[in-house]
Amino acid sequence: MTMTASTAFARTVRGSGPGLLLAHGAGGGTEANYGPIMEELSARHTVVGVDYPGSGATPKADQPLEIDGLVDQLTTAADAQGLDTFAVSGYSLGGAVAIRLAARHPERVTALVLSATFAHADTRTSLAASVWHQLFESGEHTVLAQYLNLMALSEPVLNSLTPAQLHTAAEQLAANLPVGTPEQVDLVRRADVRGDLAGIAVPTLVVVTTADPLISPTLQRELAAAIPTAEVAELRSGHLPFAERPQEWAKLIGDFLARHRKH
């Protein structure tokens, strides 16, 4: 089964309270990227996420993905839950989705949290995404998983793993790569929301993953500098804060949203 523009994405809905939309990263999913902190987030919010085409239970797309199409699906999911306003948390590629959503619906977004993310892919990120795409298409999924461990884990965490642990991690990851990986990674290379940054007026937290080999901290800080309302929190993690430092990541998000909660 393939996805058409009118097909609704698979949704995750948890908790109660003010709305919080989740936008996941390329090659991930709502559960894969936010599952480790879902309990904390849903304790104080009505959490709504959608899985991009080819992730979770959403069928693979039959056409290239676009940021605006992902935004439309997230807002439709919010509407279905009766959420007029909401905060938005975007991780990696999901950060670009969150930024575009805030630019298009400023009256509905109460706060933004952008983690390990970018407004556009620099040469390094584009090259990494290109290799990621090619390895997936080649069918060398265990090699791709090894590459992703190299490009996503912080140096201390990677160096703490034994060869046997690395092998097991790669095998597990290879078996769970979303079928929509090529389309999602292709969007990483094309996404560009730099034109939306200066107009963002809602409270914004940029969580910079300072040991991130995939999305450089420099690129993350450039994004923060271009958003007038942004504050920066540094998290000593690679590209997977939900795997390396979930409790700290959840606390940064939760504390920020609590400070900017609309009663």
Results as ranks from 00 to 15, higher is better:
residue 59 P to I: 06
residue 59 P to C: 07
residue 59 P to M: 08
residue 59 P to G: 09
residue 60 K to C: 08
residue 60 K to H: 09
residue 61 A to T: 13
residue 64 P to K: 13
residue 64 P to L: 13
residue 66 E to T: 15
residue 66 E to I: 09
residue 72 D to N: 10
residue 75 T to V: 15
residue 77 A to V: 07
residue 77 A to N: 09
residue 78 A to I: 08
residue 84 D to S: 05
residue 84 D to Y: 01
residue 88 V to L: 12
residue 88 V to T: 06
residue 88 V to P: 02
residue 89 S to G: 09
residue 90 G to C: 06
residue 91 Y to T: 00
residue 91 Y to F: 14
residue 92 S to L: 07
residue 94 G to V: 03
residue 94 G to N: 08
residue 94 G to C: 07
residue 95 G to S: 11
residue 95 G to A: 11
residue 100 R to Y: 09
residue 102 A to Q: 08
residue 102 A to H: 10
residue 102 A to C: 11
residue 104 R to A: 11
residue 107 E to S: 04
residue 107 E to L: 00
residue 107 E to W: 00
residue 107 E to F: 00
residue 108 R to C: 02
residue 109 V to Q: 05
residue 110 T to V: 00
residue 110 T to S: 13
residue 112 L to Q: 07
residue 113 V to N: 03
residue 119 A to S: 15
residue 119 A to E: 06
residue 120 H to I: 03
residue 121 A to N: 01
residue 121 A to V: 04
residue 124 R to A: 15
residue 125 T to M: 15
residue 125 T to F: 13
residue 126 S to V: 09
residue 126 S to A: 15
residue 127 L to V: 13
residue 131 V to A: 12
residue 131 V to G: 08
residue 132 W to M: 07
residue 133 H to I: 05
residue 133 H to C: 04
residue 134 Q to Y: 08
residue 137 E to T: 09
residue 140 E to Q: 14
residue 144 L to D: 03
residue 146 Q to Y: 12
residue 147 Y to I: 02
residue 148 L to V: 11
residue 151 M to T: 13
residue 156 P to D: 04
residue 157 V to R: 15
residue 157 V to E: 05
residue 157 V to A: 11
residue 161 L to N: 07
residue 162 T to R: 11
residue 162 T to E: 12
residue 163 P to D: 10
residue 163 P to F: 11
residue 166 L to C: 07
residue 166 L to W: 10
residue 166 L to S: 12
residue 168 T to R: 15
residue 177 L to D: 00
residue 178 P to Q: 00
residue 179 V to F: 06
residue 179 V to R: 12
residue 179 V to E: 15
residue 179 V to L: 08
residue 180 G to S: 04
residue 183 E to H: 10
residue 184 Q to E: 05
residue 185 V to R: 03
residue 188 V to L: 09
residue 189 R to E: 13
residue 190 R to A: 15
residue 192 D to K: 10
residue 192 D to F: 12
residue 194 R to Q: 13
residue 195 G to R: 05
residue 199 G to W: 05
residue 200 I to K: 10
residue 202 V to E: 04
residue 202 V to I: 03
residue 203 P to Y: 01
residue 204 T to M: 04
residue 204 T to G: 08
